[in-house]
Computed example of a mutant assay.
Amino acid sequence: MRQVIQAAAATFALDQASKVLVVHVLDLYARQEIAVLAPWLNFRMAWNRGINFGLFSSSEDLGRWVLIGLALAIAAWVWLWVRRERHSRIVQLSAGLLIGGAMGNVIDRLIYGAVADFLNMSVPGIDNPYSFNVADIAIFAGAFGLVLFTGREKTT
């Protein structure tokens, strides 16, 4: 379980540090967009009040609390599931990524009322309107790892 905790803590810290650096230190909040390696990578400010890509977005405060509760419930379920039996390191790492990412987005919803998204990737000629953050990457990678590697452990 130590690996789950370490992965979750590192993911959470990286996510929150990246948001402080980009949103506040680089002042993306006011600037709204910074070309990093245009068009491939830009910092583009977006406040996500829904889940990925703004799905189920709601300006209502109830929606925010429902999403916080859902993220906490999923993170708790993954934690309890991983604790219940022995899993490989990659499964524990995946669980930590998912939990740390979920907690990063929960903190955003508590502090800002929405998730701070700022990473935007496009290609020449196609402008991607969506932004994401480190927590989103971790949640996706963690969920993918759990699906891909769970059940592949050797049983004795």
Rank of each mutant, 00 (worst) to 15 (best):
I34L: 12
F144A: 14
R86H: 13
S94H: 03
V36C: 08
D61Y: 06
V22T: 05
L93N: 03
V4T: 07
A102M: 02
W40S: 07
A8R: 05
N120Q: 12
G125E: 06
G145R: 02
D117T: 02
A35W: 09
V20G: 06
M103W: 15
Q6D: 09
A9D: 07
T150R: 05
L26F: 15
A141H: 06
A30Q: 13
A17T: 09
Q6R: 13
G69D: 06
A17C: 14
W81H: 07
R44Y: 03
L80S: 15
Q3M: 14
E153Q: 14
A9H: 04
R109I: 04
A116I: 04
N42T: 04
T156K: 09
T155I: 12
N133W: 01
A116M: 12
F149K: 01
I74K: 11
G54M: 03
G50A: 12
I111N: 11
V106Q: 08
A7G: 05
L28N: 02
F56S: 13
D15G: 06
V4K: 00
Y130W: 15
S131F: 06
L70T: 06
V20D: 05
I107S: 14
S122H: 01
R64P: 05
A138N: 01
T156Q: 14
F132R: 08
N105V: 00
T11E: 09
V115R: 01
